[in-house]
Write a protein that binds this DNA or RNA. Structure first.
Length: 293
DNA sequence: ATCCAGGATGTAT
DNA sequence: ATACATCATGGA
């Protein structure tokens, strides 16, 4: 395994790995070791492991650096997938100056948006319907363990995220046995669509969010909310504001002037309230509401 | 037991 | 277009 270290001082606005990969944006990072929420006995942060393009990547944040260990040079993929080169200070500066927004940014300094692989993100959020974040994470771990390519590294076995063909071949019945419930046929049919090759990330992505959302809604199990999540966390639409139960509550309680009767106009209103990188603010507020307050 | 979780779909109006 | 019931599963 190769190792490397990226000084936090080189990352504009700093970086926090735990909040970035445990804030419900991505479900592909497995924490190695105890839950830092319940066990604060250790000095530095936990290691997290994932697989990108068949290469194992382990990472942790020490006091002054992002350390990594990988079967290849992981720095480029880490910089890209965790948006490490984005100026977080500028993002925070551009956010709206509302009390709850300010509190959320202050609570999780260094949290960044991810840029996840398209299919993984798509499947994860198809599974997310009426599911708690912790269970979505468990479901994705099950899918990787059962259908992902095993990769040996450092005496351990890691699993890549399953390919579209692998999930399509699994079929509805087996996917139900993974605990997906009524989402099993959604995942099976969406996997078939992607496996057919007619819906690539490049095909689905448009310059404007509205068009991208329309195309994403062609997938089975993808409505406006899930479409916004995929647009935000894997297609680079940083202006997207997914309206889930938590954000709807925030609109109701903190931004009543943005409340509209339908999804699209409410999302547009809160997007304008949050600023140009509204998706960043949405993710901070989501994570903040789900833990603090 | 009843309610809820990062909602979406099918059907009736 | 909009309203409504229904869809698994596990934890509180």
């Amino acid at each position: 395994m190769r190792t490397g270290s990226i000084p936090l001082a080189d990352l504009p606005g700093g970086f926090d790995l735990q909040s970035t990969v445990e804030s419900g944006q991505t479900f592909r990072w497995e924490r190695e070791g105890p839950d830092p929420e319940t066990d604060r006995a250790h000095g530095s942060d936990a290691w997290y492991a994932t697989v990108f393009d068949g290469e194992v990547v382990r990472a942790r944040r020490s006091a002054d650096a992002l350390e990594w260990e990988s079967t290849t040079d992981a720095e480029p993929v880490l910089r890209a997938r965790l948006r490490l080169d984005e100026d977080l200070a500028a993002v925070r500066e551009g956010a709206s100056d509302d009390p709850i927004v300010r509190a959320a940014y202050e609570r999780y300094p260094g949290m960044r948006l991810v840029d996840d692989p398209f299919f993984d993100c798509l499947v994860s959020f198809v599974c997310s319907a009426q599911m708690r974040v912790e269970r979505i994470r468990e479901m994705q771990a099950t899918l990787r363990a059962r259908y992902g390519e095993p990769i040996e590294a450092d005496g351990r076995t890691y699993h890549a995220f399953p390919t579209p063909a692998a999930l399509a071949a699994a079929g509805e019945t087996e996917l139900r046995e993974c605990g997906l419930g009524y989402r099993a046929p959604y995942v099976a049919r969406t996997a078939e669509m992607v496996a057919s090759g007619e819906w690539t990330a490049a095909d689905v992505r448009a310059d404007d969010l509205e068009t991208t959302r329309e195309r994403l809604c062609e997938f089975v199990g993808v409505g406006e909310k899930v479409a916004d999540c995929v647009a935000l966390f894997s297609l680079g639409h940083l202006e997207a504001v997914p309206l889930d139960t938590w954000i709807r509550r925030a609109v109701r309680e903190h931004f009543p002037a943005c409340a509209r009767d339908d999804y699209a106009s409410t999302s547009r209103a809160i997007r304008e309230a949050f600023g140009p990188l509204a998706g960043y603010t949405q993710t901070y507020v989501f994570h903040y509401l789900r833990h603090a307050e």
